[in-house]
């Protein structure tokens, strides 16, 4: 049993934003275990995949091929990873804990009958596995031990920063042909529907969010205007979706979207755990709240202790004033 096999996530060949994170976490685990890291792509090894492996100095990558793999399918991909695990006698199979990453590893580990520990932030082995993983979306940590040799592990998304090496080195690609059970094609993606092109809540550099303090669906108009001026997106707390003021697609939080903008402007949001874990990866936070003791305020780098209904229009006016000045001069 040897080797850290890391699933590099992609959608129809397009690498997931988390791909570099996965390789970085795999390199660290491989250093710790003193076992090689092998990058795995389910499907063809695209040039984008190969360059990413080279940037991370991964000596060997595996491309898992089967004519039935025409698109993503949790069962087919899970079975492919389970078979790769037995074939290679891998020590560790890992991925980033995205929706797909966790789904592939859950499928694969169930099929391989190996334990799977999701959303870890640290993994060590000294006779037994000692892992630290996220509970409650990261508001609480759990130390667990497993008395097994092989393990499936996902690393919590955003818990590792992608760190390519200073100098790239060549990656050798091995193709492994499989003959997967055709019945598993029953859960392949059948179709895709795009609702919004370009920036989304999870990739936006600026997110302007409102909570209970906004007071109504109409109250979001000024937040929309501010987000528009900053080319950002509007988010909200769970209280807002529960009140039917905004669609759940806008919800930032443990059961909504995890965001990581350059600045998060949180208006009238108390900052309960459910919300905080979705917002905590933000690089800067500005809280606008009448309550100086609100969790969101005490955890924010910047705060304005005032009514959002007065502050947000004032920010808009100030931006427009400066823009007006700069165009007239």
């Amino acid at each position: 049993m040897a080797g850290v096999y890391v699933v590099v996530e992609h959608d129809q060949g397009q690498l997931a934003p988390s791909a570099g994170e996965a390789l970085t976490a795999a390199r660290r685990l491989s250093d710790h275990l003193n076992e090689p890291v092998i990058a795995v792509v389910i499907g063809e090894a695209t040039t984008e995949f190969v360059s990413l492996c080279e940037e991370h100095g991964i000596p060997k990558a595996v491309s898992v091929l089967d004519p039935q793999i025409v698109d993503y399918g949790p069962e087919l991909w899970g079975q492919a990873m389970a078979e790769l695990f037995s074939l290679t006698e891998a020590r560790v199979v890992m991925a980033t804990g995205t929706d797909r990453g966790n789904e592939i590893l859950a499928q694969a580990s169930a099929r391989a009958q190996i334990p799977f520990v999701a959303n870890c932030i640290n993994a060590e082995f000294s006779g037994a596995w000692e892992l630290t993983r996220m509970q409650w979306g990261g508001s609480l940590l759990e130390d667990v031990t497993l008395d097994t040799s092989s393990l499936f592990i996902s690393y919590a998304h955003h818990s590792v920063e992608a760190e390519p090496l200073a100098a790239a080195s060549a990656t050798q690609i091995e193709s492994i042909e499989m003959n997967l059970d055709p019945v598993l094609c029953r859960s392949l993606v059948q179709d895709r529907v795009t609702l919004s092109e370009g920036t989304t809540l999870s990739t936006a550099a600026v997110v302007v969010s409102g909570g209970r303090g906004v007071g109504s669906a109409e109250g979001f108009a000024s937040l929309e205007a501010l987000a528009g001026l900053l080319s950002g997106k509007v988010g909200c707390s769970r209280a807002v979706t529960n009140n039917g003021w905004r669609s759940h697609a806008d919800q930032v939080g443990q059961t909504g979207t995890r965001i990581a903008p350059d600045i998060y402007i949180a208006c009238g949001i108390s900052g309960a755990i459910q919300h905080w874990v979705g917002a905590m990866a933000s690089k800067n936070i500005l809280a606008i709240n009448t309550d100086p003791e609100a969790n969101m305020v005490t955890k924010a780098g910047y705060a304005v202790i005032a009514d959002l209904h007065e502050v947000v229009p004032a920010i808009i006016a100030e931006i427009e004033r400066r823009r007006g000045n700069s165009t007239s001069t």
Binding site: G232, L286, A303, V311, A317, I319
Partner: peptide, 23 residues
């Protein structure tokens, strides 16, 4: 936490911050 103000008068400071962050 840096308190930028306690009323809408904080707006210029907020916009300074947004400019500083390049957003």
């Amino acid at each position: 936490t840096e308190i930028l103000g306690t009323s809408s008068d904080a707006a210029p400071k907020i916009v300074d911050l947004l400019e500083e962050l390049g957003v």
